[in-house]
């Protein structure tokens, strides 16, 4: 008798966990779009269009660690070696991720001769948030 009672209780608790779980899930889906626009309201317009609003939270992102000038003597029409990888121009423009976790990307066109090396690091602790949008809106500036 007491055994069935406990099992019923357990079942009830399981049910309540399930119910709360479903509701929390739905509520999260309901809240996230609004949270997004709320966070966006504290960002610079430049940032808004260059990265998602969720990047204000700490996360592992690519951070530039090195800039390399490719010497004029290297022919970029052929596969060439830079920062330890050998690849042709178009692959380098897309960015190459090396096995040791670096990302090597050619910036700009062939004449720019600029290559950057990035590494995954924790970023977002010093999010650039601003009240400018609110100040401008309330004071009527554009």
């Amino acid at each position: 008798m007491s055994g069935t009672k406990t099992s019923q209780k357990g079942q009830k608790r399981l049910g309540s966990v399930f119910v709360n779980g479903v509701l929390v899930l739905i509520c999260l889906v309901w809240l996230i779009p609004t949270i997004g626009v709320f966070i966006t309201s504290f960002r610079n317009s430049e940032d808004i269009y260059s990265s998602g609003w969720w990047t204000v939270f700490p996360h592992r992102g690519w951070v530039k660690v090195e800039e390399i000038r490719v010497p004029e003597s290297i022919d970029v029409d052929q596969p060439f070696e830079v920062a330890g990888v050998t690849a042709d121009f178009s692959t380098l423009r897309q960015g190459i991720v090396t096995p040791d976790g670096r990302k090597i990307t050619w910036i700009g066109n062939k004449r720019s001769r600029l290559v950057i090396v990035e590494e995954k690091r924790w970023v977002g602790f010093s999010a650039r948030l601003t009240l400018d949008n609110y100040r401008d809106t309330l004071s009527g500036e554009s």
Binding site: P33, G36, T40, G52, W53, R93, T105
Partner: peptide, 18 residues
């Protein structure tokens, strides 16, 4: 718009849509 945003294809473009 911040959920469905689409930035297009290209080098170095970050999607801003969730």
């Amino acid at each position: 718009k911040f959920v469905y945003a689409y930035r297009g294809e290209g080098v170095g473009i970050q999607e801003i849509g969730l």
